[in-house]
């Protein structure tokens, strides 16, 4: 449980934009992530949090530094199909029903048919969409679509669950509800979760540790351990301890003069 699983070693990322200027998206970020940990990458836009997530997912190659996961490269982990990814948008396939959307990665991975069906049932139940399996994505609300995206990632029982601002397009009420649901689901799966967000209370509510990133260039400013008891329910958001953590993290940003 406490063993280091993902090592981020001096990872830098430099883009060249259209005007030919070099943009320092990530500047020598180092970080250790433990097995089964829920960590958030928190920061304003431009801090490189999504870039870091994409580098871990092998969707981007860093200009410098490396990432080691259980002694292997992100590419090895991707080829071994151990990632589950949830994007900012639900990224559902319009032509597939909810059930078949969840089924898609399992088809690619060659999960036997019987097992697919049982996993779909289980995951649909988990995200509270039991009666919507036969619907097409356009028939669902944004929040429901996002749940389908989460169910699809979970159905793989991924060792590493990477989430890129999955709730940022949703209203506050739906977001808080899904935060709670996500923790409940995570409690059952025990994947290692890397969760990108720009919402301070969300990061505090969800995480074991919050990684605070600041922009221009994207730098690791602080790592804040969140010692709040689990299981966490939404009432926790009204507790003084919760406010303290939110205030503490907000201060991290003020100190670097955002």
């Amino acid at each position: 449980m406490s063993e280091t699983q993902i090592q981020v070693k001096d990872v830098s990322m430099v883009y060249t934009n259209n005007a030919g200027e070099k943009i320092n998206a990530l500047d020598s970020v180092s970080l250790d992530i433990k097995e089964g940990e829920f960590i958030s990458l928190l920061g304003p836009s431009g801090c490189g949090k999504t870039t870091l997530l994409r580098i871990i997912a092998d969707l981007l190659q860093p200009t410098d530094g490396e990432i080691i996961i259980d002694g292997q490269s992100p590419r090895d982990i991707r080829i071994k199909q151990e990632y589950g990814i949830v994007f900012q948008q639900p990224v559902l396939y319009d032509w597939r029903t909810v059930r078949r959307n969840i089924c898609l990665p399992m088809e690619i991975m060659g999960v036997p048919k019987k097992e697919r069906t049982s996993r779909i049932d289980e995951k649909l139940d988990l995200v509270g969409l039991k009666d919507f399996g036969k619907k097409y994505p356009f028939e669902l609300s944004g929040g429901m679509q996002q749940r389908v995206g989460i169910a699809r990632a979970l159905a793989l029982n991924p060792k590493y669950l990477l989430m890129d601002e999955p709730f940022s397009a949703l209203d506050e009420f739906t977001r808080e509800k899904l935060n709670e649901d996500l923790l409940e689901i995570w409690g059952k799966t025990k994947s290692t979760v890397i969760f990108v967000t720009h919402n301070i209370p969300e990061s505090v509510f969800l995480s074991d540790r919050v990684i605070v990133l600041t922009p221009h260039p994207g730098k690791l400013a602080a790592v804040v351990d969140i010692d709040l008891p689990r299981p966490r329910r939404n009432e926790l958001r009204d507790s003084p301890e919760f406010f303290e953590y939110v205030a503490k993290i907000r201060k991290c940003f003020q100190e670097v003069k955002m």
Binding site: D58, R78, I79, K80, Y83, I85, Q89, V91, L156
Partner: peptide, 18 residues
Amino acid sequence: VDQEKKELLYAIAASKFN
């Protein structure tokens, strides 16, 4: 085809055929 829809398959190492 949207980039993200492709990345979804790329992330689980889907073959070109798939």
